[in-house]
Design a protein around this nucleic acid. Structure first.
Lengths: 347, 347
DNA sequence: GCTAGGAATGTAACCGGTTACAGCTGCGAC
DNA sequence: GTCGCAGCTGTAACCGGTTACATTCCTAGC
């Protein structure tokens, strides 16, 4: 490893000058700068990150809090890979890396209800590592714990959880509009009794999608019937059960908007089990556009989220807070209705 | 942030002693140790990681090289989430974190054939960050680039790519045995003409699965017929095309072992397109047990890999090399045949 | 009683940068 | 001619730990 001292010596300047070339090039005369840059390139020098972090009290790393309880079914994030890719590429263009914080599962083992391993341990870790910021992935129900991060003073961006603070914000899809569009689409296909299977209560995107469902009905001039709103939890099983309950009605819906693809697939299976054909007897629309959506039979019509966009938007918001100290603004990503077979639109 | 100096002052000892309490407790007298530990706990002190990394020339971080070209179809890892979870939890128990290295895509943009952004940039990064080790995820065809990492002297663990060196090793499934088991299962169901659709050439797991296919045939006393070996590339399309070619034969196979679930699904679609019923007219077995496998119709019989096991095994091997400097040993994880509907076994 | 040696602790030199401050130079203005 | 100031660079004090080496103290052995 070449150090700045060696570069300085070879250039006949002090280490301070070498450091300046890498941090505030404008303060160094052009000739000196070029000489240092050339020698640095020749020796393949670049500043040691540990030393830099120690000295600056800030590292070139962004922490990723993704603390999921793998014992809970459906612990997987619907599109973590796209998210990581988006984050990674957006961060890399500014020289930041992503640190996947690891905490022991002790706290969770002791208190089974707690989903985040230990917020305090996390906050300490972010300090010890001099992290520049934090990306928080909602892993279910730790919205309260997230405020602890926001209060730590570190720039924070949460995904799909409303987070506010002087240096905190969040990124989410425009869930309400996406849901409304799905419902309007079903209405336009002639459906009058459109049901919905919602996500878990307390979940912000779930609430927004239900709100969007209502708005979509209103937009289409259809009455809102509360008995057509069935609550689920985003996972397949609840879609199956919810659909079965809906089909047992004496006046079952002809279409259903499920607040997640997993539940839509559950609904599909329930319809099949009840001897119904989709989309002929029942139209189904989901939300997310997970990988499986195009594979099930019939292929699922769904509201697609901008998956890599989540990553880039989160990274962008975070970098803005880190580097410009700008006032954070929540980001609402547009969704896109992907029409496949399960809704019965001819295509 | 509390520093060691403050703790030392409050305890009436020197910083060196505080440091020793955290690093080599045995060299400190019991009474002093307890006093320091108590005060440290009260002040919520823990050593600053940047300073520690700088001083020790080694950080508590393991780099993750996952440099996939998202413009290539099928760039997704079949089970990255399980992998990350396994890695994370195994590493956390030893206090290590996972750093997702970000490199600019420049190199790749300039040379479209290159899949890893820039191995040299990566190696430099690992040095600058004082990383303790490296986990290499194969993203296609950069096996050669991986040797550059192995030669950097840093402990390296590759996944699904044979990597050798004094401080390098790899983790992979027992692909050959898994494939052999699948083929024996098909033979036991009465199939005599069992075809295979292979993975891409040059890919180690793909080669092992083909070898296992041959071994399975031999085990079952069936002749190996080279015309029943069709090459694919792990992605769905190649499974579809391969199956179509097989079905066009005058003497088509009654069963097919696809070296990946994606290709198996492609084969399923091709069979359906040809008017064949699965499993009645054609038995299909895949490899991986990806999430979709249980969702397709018919549900896919497949060779399951130990997904979280990959992560824990990789972390274990890496930690062993980092902490004990043990001679690295490749890990071969056992697979498990998951019998569902597509093979025609009654269950 | 004296010494050798081991255990416990302190001292201070690192690790490799960043940056406040001071010093030097050269130029235009008076 | 000199004063002021801006631009450039060097000096040295950090950042917060780790650790080789020195020192002190105590005990066992003679």
């Amino acid at each position: 490893m070449v150090t700045a001292r060696e570069v300085a010596q070879l250039c006949g300047v002090s280490v301070a000058t070498v450091s300046r070339v890498f941090n505030r090039p404008a303060t160094v005369s052009a000739t000196t700068r070029e000489r240092v840059e050339r020698v640095a390139r020749e020796l393949d020098f670049s500043p040691n990150e540990s030393a830099r972090a120690l000295s600056r009290q800030q590292s070139a790393m962004v922490g990723l809090v993704w603390d999921t309880d793998h014992r809970r079914p459906g612990w997987r994030h619907p599109f973590l890979q796209d998210l990581l890719l988006g984050l990674k590429s957006a961060l890399s263009s500014h020289g930041y890396h992503l640190l996947l914080l690891a905490t022991s599962d002790d706290a969770r083992d002791r208190h089974p209800g707690v989903s985040l391993a230990d917020p305090i341990a996390y906050v300490g870790m972010t300090r010890r590592h001099h992290l520049a910021g934090l990306v928080l992935i909602d892993s279910g129900t730790d919205a309260e714990a997230f405020t602890a991060f926001a209060q730590s003073g570190l720039p924070c961006v949460a995904l799909d959880v409303a987070l506010a603070g002087p240096r905190a914000t969040y990124v989410t899809s425009d869930n309400a509009e996406g849901a409304a569009e799905a419902v309007r689409h079903l209405a336009a296909l002639g459906h009058r009794r459109i049901a919905t299977i919602t996500g878990p209560r307390g979940n912000a995107p779930a609430a927004a999608r239900t709100e969007g469902y209502r708005r979509g009905l209103a937009d289409a001039g259809l009455p809102a019937r509360e008995d057509l709103v069935i609550s689920g939890d985003f996972y397949r099983e609840s879609g199956f059960v919810g659909m079965r309950r809906l089909l047992a009605r004496k006046d079952p819906p002809t279409a259903v908007f499920a607040a997640s693809d997993e539940m839509a697939i559950g609904a599909l299976l329930a319809a099949r089990a009840a001897g119904l054909r989709v989309p002929a007897d029942l139209a189904v629309v989901g939300f997310d556009d997970i990988e499986v959506a195009s594979l099930v039979d019939p292929a699922l019509t769904t509201v697609a989220q901008d998956k890599p966009g989540f990553g880039t938007a989160a990274a962008g918001a975070l970098l803005a807070m880190i580097e410009n100290a700008t006032a954070p603004q929540p980001v609402h990503l547009p969704t896109k209705l992907v029409v496949r077979d399960s809704c019965g639109a001819k295509r």
